[in-house]
C-alpha cells in the first residue's frame, strides 16, 4: 500500500508588506460585493440605517468605484424607527444618489401591531421578518446583502458568507453549503435566494474603528448627548413612541446614547459621555456586555435569535 504523502508545504518568507487587519477585511468584503453583483441577476442591499449598514454602503462604493453601486437599497421600515434614523436615511441616500426602496407591513400596522399588544417576538415576526420576506418576493430579489457579523451572537458564528434560503426564505442550519477558500456557490433554483453577509468576519470594534478611519457618517443617536428618557432601574427607555407609562419622576434628562439602533419601543439607551468616535471606541473597549444585550428582543427565550433566523429574520 502506497503512502499518501503530500508535497511539503513551503513556509513562505514574510517579505511582502502585510496589510493591517482592517485593510484585509475591507479587501475581502469588496471581493464579496463584486462576486454577488456579477453572479446574481437581481441583488439588493438590506439597509437598516445602523452603523453596520453605513460600513456596508462605504464598502459597496469602494467595490464599484468609479462606477455607481449597481443595486438598490431596501429598508424594511417597521413603523417604529426613530425619527432621527429616517431623516438620516433620506438625507444620506439622496446625497449619494442611491436608489432606496422602503417596505412596510402596512396590513399589520393598520391592525395596530405593536410590541406590547403582540409581544416582541410576534411583533418582530410581522413587522420585520414577514415584511422582509414579502419585499424580497415582491421585487424578485435573488440575493440580499445583510450587515450581520459572526461575532454578534452564537448562532451567527456558524453562518456562511453566502447563506442559502429556501423558497420560504428560511435558513436550515443543518443543510448549509460548505464554503471553502473564497469560492462562493451562487447557484440557486427558482424562488430560492441567498443572503450575503460581507461583514461576516468583522467585529464590533472593527466596525467602529473603520467608521472612525474612513469618517463614515452615522446616525447621531449613536453619540451621547442629554436626552429626555424614562429612567427605570438600570433601564433608560426612549420616550419616542414609547409604550411604557412613566411614573412621576421617572422622566429625566440623561446624557446617554444608543449602542445599537432598533425600534424605539424595544431599544434601550445606555448612560454615556461618549460624544465622539474615539470616546465611543474607548467605551466599547471597556464594555463588558455584548451589544445585543441592550436589545429587549433577545431576552425572550434562550436561543431566540436562532429561532428568528430559521424563520427568515436576518
Amino acid at each position: 500500500m502506497a503512502s499518501a504523502t503530500l508535497p511539503e508545504i513551503p513556509v513562505y518568507d514574510n517579505s511582502a508588506p502585510r496589510l493591517s487587519h482592517l485593510r484585509q477585511l475591507e479587501a475581502e468584503s469588496i471581493h464579496i460585493f463584486r462576486e454577488v453583483a456579477s453572479e446574481f441577476e437581481k441583488p439588493v442591499m438590506l439597509y437598516s440605517i445602523g452603523k453596520d449598514s453605513s460600513v456596508m454602503l462605504r464598502l459597496a462604493q469602494k467595490a464599484f468605484y468609479p462606477g455607481p453601486i449597481p443595486f438598490p437599497l431596501l429598508h424594511v421600515d417597521t413603523g417604529y424607527k426613530f425619527r432621527e434614523m429616517l431623516e438620516f436615511r433620506d438625507n444620506y441616500t439622496r446625497e449619494l444618489g442611491l436608489e432606496l426602496l422602503v417596505w412596510r407591513n402596512e396590513g399589520a400596522l393598520a391592525d395596530g401591531a405593536n410590541p406590547v399588544k403582540l409581544g416582541t417576538q410576534r411583533c418582530c415576526g410581522l413587522l420585520k421578518t414577514t415584511a422582509l420576506l414579502d419585499a424580497l418576493r415582491h421585487y424578485g430579489f435573488d440575493a440580499a446583502f445583510g450587515g450581520a457579523r459572526r461575532d454578534e451572537e452564537k448562532s451567527r458564528a456558524k453562518e456562511r458568507i453566502y447563506s442559502f434560503r429556501d423558497k420560504a426564505g428560511q435558513w436550515n442550519p443543518k443543510a448549509q453549503r460548505p464554503e471553502l477558500w473564497n469560492l462562493y456557490n451562487s447557484r440557486i433554483g427558482p424562488g430560492e435566494s441567498i443572503r450575503v453577509f460581507p461583514l461576516s468576519n468583522w467585529t464590533e470594534l472593527d466596525i467602529w474603528h473603520y467608521i472612525h478611519l474612513e469618517e463614515i457618517p452615522i446616525v447621531p443617536l449613536y453619540f451621547a448627548k442629554k436626552r429626555r428618557m424614562l429612567v427605570r432601574g438600570d433601564s433608560l427607555i426612549p420616550l419616542e413612541q414609547s409604550f411604557v407609562q412613566g411614573l412621576p419622576g421617572e422622566e429625566q434628562m440623561v446624557k446617554c446614547r444608543l449602542r445599537s439602533l432598533g425600534c424605539s419601543p424595544c431599544t434601550g439607551a445606555i448612560r454615556s459621555d461618549a460624544d465622539t468616535l474615539p470616546k465611543i471606541i474607548a467605551e466599547l473597549v471597556s464594555f463588558r456586555s455584548s451589544e445585543r444585550a441592550n436589545r429587549v428582543i433577545d431576552h425572550d427565550q434562550e436561543g431566540s435569535m436562532e429561532i428568528k433566523k430559521r424563520e427568515g429574520y436576518f
Binding site: V11, Y12, D13, N14, S15, A16, P17, R18, H31, R34, E35, A37, S38, F64, Y65, P66, G67, P68
Partner: peptide
Amino acid sequence: EIAGRRADAPFRMPVQRVIRP
C-alpha cells in the same frame, strides 16, 4: 511570523467584473 505571501510570487488577479461607468 505569519507565513505570508511571497513578495516575489508571480502576479495573479482573477477579473471579477468590468467597471465601465
